[in-house]
Each structure stands twice: as C-alpha cells, then as structure tokens.
C-alpha cells in the first residue's frame, strides 16, 4: 500500500494579510511602496491575502489595479478574504481564492527593519506555524488524608497523596501519581493514554500498578523494591520498577 501519490493534510501557515480600509490607486501604491522599502526582503515574493473585512461600506474596488500594484512590489496575492456581497462578482473575475472572514483575532505584524540590501542573502522565511497546540497544564490534585478501602480518587492532572493508599482503594490520574505514604491499593497513572506518566511511592505494597493501560499485579511486583521506595515507568510497553534514591 505504498503507492499512494499523496496525502491530504491540514496545515496552518502564517501569512501577510493586507487589510484594506479603502482603495484608490495612487495612495495604495504609495503607501505599499513605503512599507516595502522598509523591508524589501521581507516582502520579496511574499504570498499575501487581501482582506476586505474592514473595508468602508459600499466602496468600489478595482481588483485588477489592486493586484497589479501588489505584483509590482513583488508580492503574490493568493486570496481575497471577506469579500462583501456587492464585490463578489468582481472578485470572481480575479480567479483568486475567496475565503470567508475569520473569527480569530489577527496579530498586527511587525515588519522587520530594513537590512542593507545584499543580493545573495536568502529571503527570510515568513511561513511559520501559528496554531501551536497549546499545552494546558492541569492543576495537581493534592490529597492529605488517607485514601481508604473502597474510595477512589481521580485527578485530570497529576495526583499527590500525602498519606497512605489502603488496600482496596484506587488512585487514578491522567498524569503522574506521587504517594508519600504506603501504597497498598491500586495506582493507575496516564489513564488517558499518556505513556510518559510515572508513579512514585514511598512504600510499594500495591495490589496493582498501571500506566497507560499496561498493568502489573502485586505478585509480579514482589521481586523489586517491594515495601520500599520506588518509581514505576513505562519502557517499551513494559512497566519498569526502579528504586527511588
């Protein structure tokens, strides 16, 4: 099955947006010229999107002239964004992509300061990922009293138990688990599948230990660090018990 010619992927790239307030050939050409002169390399063959979101109402726009000016300054118009109704027909003539208005707030782009022009320097890369997955850190849950038989404690982040976990009790966390008492019950870390989750305890006497669905029972725990301080991690689908020291 390796004869696939391509794969479809979604990707977010950052791009220069020209946000048009009004359009007249002369002032647009002049103002764009100024910007480009500030950082010629930044704009060199730069793809741009022309946004009409902020366009003063009912303004006519001469798309042909607009695009010509852009190209003159070595910009590459790729698409028109948020085209108002009365301009849609004209916009279609340009054969550029028409994209709807965005909900996301744009950041105002700071144009880098002009550098002494030298022909052999590579144009700066302006494409970068803007939608980075934001890693939200869940708060750690801290339990100060013993977790007794029949009780269950779950944390969607890390879990710290500053007392014992009795036999028949169960502690679970999406992240790591730390137990500063004797662990006689069950401890399950990385329950949402985080294989990097770890379990730390002062006294390993557990009924069951599990990380990301891989578990071991007390019978298999007897050989190493039993009733001793230990940490347990997942290495290549098998749980490793290591002394804490």
């Amino acid at each position: 099955m390796n004869d696939a010619s391509f794969q479809l992927k979604g990707s977010a790239v950052s791009i220069v947006v020209i946000e048009l307030y009004q359009f007249s050939v002369d002032s647009f050409a002049e103002q764009l010229g100024q910007k480009v002169r500030q950082a010629p390399q930044f704009f060199q063959q730069s793809p741009v999107v022309i946004s009409l979101e902020k366009l003063t109402e009912d303004q006519p726009v001469d798309f042909t002239a607009l695009l010509d000016i852009c190209r003159e300054f070595h910009l590459q118009p790729m698409a028109l964004r948020a085209v108002p109704e009365h301009l849609v027909a004209a916009a279609r003539e340009t054969h550029l992509a028409l994209i709807p208005a965005t909900q996301r707030n744009d950041t105002e782009l700071e144009t880098p300061q002009a550098e002494p022009a030298s022909s052999d320097t590579q144009p700066e890369v302006v494409v970068k990922k803007i939608v980075e997955e934001r890693l939200v850190r869940r708060p750690t849950k801290v339990i100060t009293r013993p977790v007794r038989s029949g009780q269950q404690v779950y944390s969607d982040g890390d879990l710290v138990v500053m007392a014992q976990v009795s036999a028949g009790a169960e502690v679970l966390a999406d992240g790591d688990i730390h137990i500063y008492g004797t662990l006689r019950g069950r401890a399950l870390a990385g329950v949402q599948g985080d294989t990097n989750a770890k379990i730390f305890c002062q006294n390993l006497s557990a009924e069951l230990i599990a990380i990301a669905g891989n578990f071991i029972l007390s019978d298999s725990l007897q050989e190493k660090c039993w009733q001793d301080a230990a940490y347990i991690s997942l290495e290549e689908d098998s749980l490793q018990v290591q002394p804490l020291s």
């Binding site: 009293r145 013993p146 977790v147 007794r148 038989s149 029949g150 009780q151 009795s166 036999a167 028949g168 009790a169």
Partner: peptide, 13 residues
C-alpha cells in the same frame, strides 16, 4: 481491619 478501613473512608466522606 479491611472493613474498618472501609468504614473510616465512609466516615471521612
């Protein structure tokens, strides 16, 4: 002892 542990959990919850 196990049952007492259980009842302690109920007491505190």
């Amino acid at each position: 002892v196990r049952d007492s542990d259980r009842i302690l959990g109920i007491l505190q919850s």
